[in-house]
Amino acid sequence: MYSEFIETLFVTGKLAVATTILLFIIGLPVSYMLAFARFRLKILLEALISMSMVLPPTVMGYYLLVAFSPQNGFGKFLEHYFDLRLAFTFEGILIASVVFGLPFMIQPLQNGLMSLPESLREVSYTLGKSKTTTFFRVLLPNIKPSIITGIAMTFAHCIGEFGVVLMVGGDIPGVTRMASIAIYDEAQALNYTVANRYSLILFLISFVLLTIIFSVNKRHKV
């Protein structure tokens, strides 16, 4: 029982860390593009990225499950050419979690970049610096609160993920069972002590992360 508890927490932590790292890597270029580039369909892209903020998680979970299914085109393609099955696997819930977590990383980064004076970027260009150098040496270091907010929000949101992960990953102990799903299972089985343990841990993690976000933002406002 205890080892299952630890195993579930380990899967939850692994998914949250992997999702946050992947989303940070994806979020940097995407947020830069959304903040500064002008192109047709930009609004559509922004809406698509933000969908998970309003869409019921089960809807996105359903679509991803259908896409990952080896019976259908994309899932069949992955299995045939890469011997990769995403439905009911850790890799599957990782992709689902990344897709679902997009706005929690990208929006803070995009807002941070847009809040900087345009002259910072422009003066760097007139000093001969490339867009890449300007991004990493001038822009990113000046949006630290947004970076911390993005990382903390993504991590906290992923820890508490339920609907998408349940749809795509099922509830396989040690593979796709997350703490949030385990709480439901344990409560259904009337194991309130274990459910309480999971709940307390998730509560504390979320509370600590939100406190970090608020204190960082407050420090940078003063």
């Binding site: 422009e122 003066v123 260009y125 007139t126 001969g128 610096k129 490339s130």
Partner: peptide
């Protein structure tokens, strides 16, 4: 701007 050598 990077190639113009103009200070601003």
């Amino acid at each position: 701007p990077q190639k113009r050598n103009v200070g601003y």
